[in-house]
Nucleic acid binder design. Structure first.
Lengths: 210, 210
DNA sequence: GTGTTAGCTTAACACCGTTAAGCAAGGAGA
DNA sequence: TCTCCTTGCTTAACGGTGTTAAGCTAACAC
């Protein structure tokens, strides 16, 4: 049975071509600049053809993000091997910030833009699994740090602590993405702000002080 | 000389009508929902008429934001009277968070959306003046706290510290605005996250510890 | 009374996402 | 081999957007 597989392979190819074309527009110019007509021109199809492969524009772009966010998961996978939970937290914070700054349009779409609640099954990434899910990874670090008595004793809820930690690094990234062109603010170097935030958080959380 | 003033007053009136109509759409449904045709319908003019009063859609909405952001300046004006800089910082943080959560669309437009660098004179608010400029207000608090030896001694740059502090509270607000509908995250109450962040920051910055 | 200008309208342009309808090619079943 | 039907695409169009060019009208200045 040859032809059936060939057809499926071809379909998968043009689907990939759509994603690639969309990615190229997306990473250089952002969500608004990705137009169905623009994608179509790049791959030399008509705009309508895209709707055979994707429900709408949003699912095209989510396909781009889903595939690119695996890069973040890979970074986290390496960090997961670090023994000391505090050091793991520090490295994870920096990796998260680096990822956000290297993929500003992805980051903006995923974490700075309100979306209608999406069906869990629409995304291929599995939630709750620290390997795929960056938030779950963070919670696991915090939970371990709490269990090992490395955090202040009034900090008992891993989710609350995680959400505060996340807010901190998210604040640095998102402010940079949204306001870096604003010369009204006398911005200090990104690296200093990032490192300052990470140290401020870790220092504020933990038991010992040096 | 009557007619001239009357004409100017009338022009100012329809300008205000445009802003009011735009605000009504903006605060309930956000930037995208504000359409020139929608504004026009509300004030019973044609869409084109708006272009006599405003350059484009963006300047209509910026006029809305400019006028509404004076509310934040007023909150800060009260806080400015607090003696203790640390306590002033705490109150300012909470006021900022409250403002952001009460005006999510304003907040999103001003701090979560990248803009092309705008000409300073396009906005009526004066920069650098702590009375109008929330950032300058924050810097003034931090500078005073440093001068009075209330912060850790390695924290010497008011701008760097301010930017980190701002990032922290901004992170809480912006994550709430962008991701509060995401039930994939087991969100803790907003108040706990906000208070936790403010205390974490203040605790991380200052000299003494209780 | 004439000319000018302010303030608005009508009509259109160039985009956008999306959809209905049709067409051509190729596999499936007789 | 002939027919049918599905797959994958195209053509054409709809309703929406921001924006602009051109024209009209009433009120003012002289």
């Amino acid at each position: 049975m040859g032809p059936k597989e060939r057809r499926e392979r071809e379909r998968e190819d043009t689907r990939a071509a759509i994603i690639d074309a969309a990615r190229e527009l997306f990473v250089t110019q952002g969500y608004e600049a990705v137009t169905m007509r623009g994608i179509a021109k790049k791959i030399e199809y008509t705009p309508t053809a895209i709707y055979f492969h994707f429900k709408d524009k949003e699912s095209v772009i989510r396909a781009v993000c889903d595939s690119d966010f695996s890069a973040l998961a890979q970074k986290f996978a390496k960090i997961a091997r670090i023994d000391d939970p505090i050091e793991r937290l520090r490295k994870a914070g920096h990796a998260y910030i680096t990822f956000g700054l290297e993929n500003p349009f992805h980051y903006r779409l995923m974490f700075m833009t309100p979306h209608p609640p999406m069906n869990t099954d629409e995304s291929e990434l599995r939630h709750g699994n620290p390997e795929d899910d960056a938030y779950a990874f963070l919670v696991s670090i915090i939970a371990e740090a709490i269990a090992k008595g490395r955090l202040r004793k009034d900090l008992k809820d891993p989710h609350l602590v995680s959400q505060i930690v996340w807010s901190g690094v998210h604040g640095v990234i998102s402010l940079e993405i949204a306001k870096c062109h604003d010369d009204w603010i006398d911005w200090r170097p990104m690296k200093k702000r990032a490192a300052g935030m990470v140290e401020l958080i870790i220092d504020g959380l933990r038991t010992e002080r040096d």
